[in-house]
Design a protein around this nucleic acid. Sequence first.
RNA 1: CGGGGUGUAGUUCAUCGGCAGAACGCUUGGUUUGGGACCAUGAUGUAGGAGGUUCAAUUCCUCUCACCCCGACCA
Length: 571
Amino acid sequence: MLYSKLFPKTIKETPKDASLTSHKLLYRGGFIRESAAGRYYLLPLGIRVHQKIQKIIKEEMDKTGAQEMVTPVLHPKELWKETNRTSSVGFELMSIKDRNEMEFVLGGTAEEMLVDLVRKFKLSYRDLPFNLYQFSTKFRDELRARGGLLRLREFMMKDAYSFDATEGDFKTEYEKMSKTYTEIFNRMGLKTIIVESDNGYIGGEYCHEFVVESEVGESRFLMTEDGSYAAHEDVAKFSLERKNVSEKEKPLEEVEAVRGTTMEDGVKLHNLPLWQQIKDVLFVDEKGRFILSIIRGDYDVNETKLLHLIKSYQLRHATEEEIREKIHSEPGFISPVGIKDIIEKDVELIIVADDSLRTVKNAYGGANKKHRDLLNMNIDRDYKADIEGDIALAREGDLAADGGGKLIAKKGIEVGNIFQLGFHYSSKMKGANYIDKDGKEKPYYMGCYGIGLARTLATVVEVYNDEKGIVWPESVAPYQVHLVGLDLSDKAVLEKAEQVYKILTSHGIEVLFDDRIEPSAGEKFADADLIGIPYRVVISKKTGAEIEVKKRSQKETEFKKLEDLVKSIKE
RNA sequence: CGGGGUGUAGUUCAUCGGCAGAACGCUUGGUUUGGGACCAUGAUGUAGGAGGUUCAAUUCCUCUCACCCCGACCA
């Protein structure tokens, strides 16, 4: 490719709307340009990198025996209604109608489509297992697009869907995908951490994110120093510190408590430790049920864990009016003790207690009345929970549940993830069955696996850059060689540069040839550094019979024979 | 959706009631040529949009739209 003809050229200025390194460099280098928020043009340089990423993913997926295909972009809305996802999806579904008033959604993920495809065939256990994948543009009407390519409303995703007969077979596939993903990202120069995470609207019982550690990432997770355990903040487990469990239960006592409504106010007034206080947080779920979550005072409620326990998908905090009028309690003085006896008749209240309440005795907290507190509350004796479980938010410094030591909080970019779906879709969608050995119909055991290509591209730039520009790993670079011709007004030099361009190209090496005559050497070098192609080859009056080679990742330049360069690139 | 911010030339920004400006980029001509060089030259605007106040609005007010950042979501 001749640089003089490349659309577009680099720019010097940093766009004011770009705050992330990857966004700035990709913009300045001429890889991307924005259309609307979260929707980008991939320009000629950008699409080349994108395609390299795609190729790596395809090669690794094919190796596993997965088969590539493609679904329509418009998904019949009926399918999404079948699994009830029209109401549960976290991203806003984009909808559209055709001339016959048929409703479609613009695909944001394709579980229903694949299940619908597979159920069109009556398959036998002999046909299993299989894994189908595609590259296609996904549409997600994100609440907020962000950070250039880091979070888009429209992006190409590789999504794969596996169909197995048994959980055991599935686990083999899941493990295979996990290894494949690690390899895919490795080939792009990305070190990924496999993080247990929440499945959100996708459904299923467990899943893992592939995260590249980065300050600009949105994924918050906790991991042990030795890496034995890594989990997203939403799901991270830790071992509870036991407090005064051996203390004798004292009689329950109601006292006057003229205080503010914060936890600290309680600590000050009673002069007791924070951990001995009960924290009560009242939520309302999407069905209108009130959820009273209670937890030891020194912990916080993890809403994701809570959602799973109560099998809902949305929570909001109850308002002060609701606390007074529906629950007949008082903000800042809520208590599980006797609360079910005072609530409005038509109110459904579920009490969810965190396991931490079993690690403390004689706790204190509100009495459901303004300026009244209870002392010496004990679970079982004074109050009971409808559900008990882990609803605590893990924090840095907590001890990992696996005994791997203290948890460290980290941030990263989620470039891919793998989900166990189990029967989540195949049981909801009629006819998603295969015929087993015994002649009976059984639902498919499923999994799905996604990688966002543009985000991966941006992540590579976040990791590989310096003050001058991008430093592409060879595997995803738009070109392998950036040929810089200097002194091109000299005919002999120009001819030699063209000769070098031809020879490299004839060896199948991808070359971007800066054939411009006008710009100064400094300008051309600055462009080469910004674009970040791995090998910079200079031809000038100085280079004589040899060529000058510099790796983008290194400072030293060396003179060598063209054949030697070809050899080292081909290796 | 809540909070904060920005909209003026292709880009980055000035002007902050009184003729629309600079730098970079672009055109043309020339001098240069190993780290964004220089001289000259020319072109480029519905000041996001609508309404209002005013003798006069890019500037003040109202509304609206777009975009960016933080938060609730995710590849």
